[in-house]
Design a protein around this nucleic acid. Structure first.
Length: 273
DNA sequence: CGGCCGACCTGCGGGC
DNA sequence: TGCCCGCAGGTCGGCC
């Protein structure tokens, strides 16, 4: 579910409600997600103030004075704000209580992660964070940067965009959507794409992610969607999940193929190698 | 190092 | 109705 826009929308939703508040309690109900859950959590956070919520790629960082809670939502994770005392359901793994509010993590497939990073260490040196690539919404993500980073790479451009060790936050949906907007065939080897085409792709990635954040933000003020999907952006998909349907620009049918066991959607007429 | 593939999990929808 | 299959928004580790 969650790619960069969903994680960012979640971050903003939680931050406005909880930053500056103190943890009053909480509970873990599951021994492990992708990794074991620290057994001291959330008891050790009792009395601590949530100072800030950051994001690095698809990771959320809940900052407290003694350290940060690193949260990844995996494929099916979501964070929700609820009134304290709301009954837990199946797949609700972690609660953090802030007075009358409850921050609850649900993740049916349990591909997500919750890790405690002590402030004494440089949290960005943690292996999961240290190996992450560039932020696609940052100023240093430029066409020239992506062009240089892809020289000599034989991988098709679509799976390359999903490589978080190169660029973070772009998942299966937004990779297909961005390539459609840029008019690039998802099978094109990344190293054979000219600078001129990256000059279209980089703004297309930015526009796609920002539009999704806006769409999520508009429907998400004090509520975080149960499925982690971002608001109404699904209605704006050009290609994702639209196999056989008419391209919104040329009318020809959208095609579907598999790249590295993931579904790719594209318009063979509007997207060229 | 680059590229590929299986593994980790649960739920859902379609076909028989 | 029930079973089996394939599919789902991520990413790590192991192999060549």
């Amino acid at each position: 579910m969650p790619e960069l826009p969903e994680v960012e929308v979640t971050r903003r939703g939680i931050a406005t409600e909880l930053v500056g508040r103190r943890v009053t309690g909480g509970v873990t109900r599951t021994a492990r997600l992708r990794y074991p859950l620290s057994p001291e959590l959330p008891g050790s956070l009792k009395g601590e103030t949530l100072r800030d919520i950051g994001r690095r790629g698809k990771y959320l960082l809940l900052d407290f004075d003694p350290g940060s809670l690193l949260i990844h939502l995996g494929m099916s994770g979501s964070l929700r704000l609820l009134p304290s005392g709301t009954a837990a359901q199946k797949h609700d793994h972690l609660d953090l209580e802030f007075g009358e509010r409850l921050l609850r993590l649900r993740d049916p497939r349990r591909f997500g992660a919750v890790l405690w990073l002590a402030a004494a260490d440089d949290i960005y040196m943690h292996p999961l964070l240290a190996s992450l690539g560039i932020e696609p919404l940052a100023d240093d993500f430029t066409p020239r940067w992506l062009f240089a980073a892809t020289r000599g790479r034989n991988v098709p451009i679509k799976p390359l965009l999903m490589d978080s060790h190169l660029v973070v936050g772009i998942g299966n949906i937004y990779a297909s959507e961005s390539l459609y907007r840029a008019g690039i065939d998802p099978r094109t080897p990344a190293g054979r794409i000219a600078l001129k085409r990256y000059e279209r792709l980089v703004p297309a990635i930015r526009a796609t992610l920002q539009a999704a954040i806006r769409a999520g933000g508009s429907s998400l003020r004090d509520f975080i969607h149960s499925d982690g999907s971002s608001g109404y952006f699904q209605q704006q998909y050009f290609v994702y999940g639209r196999t056989g349907e008419a391209c919104r620009v040329c009318g020809k049918p959208i095609r579907n193929l598999r790249q590295g066991q993931r579904a790719t959607f594209f318009c063979p007429h509007c997207q060229r190698p």
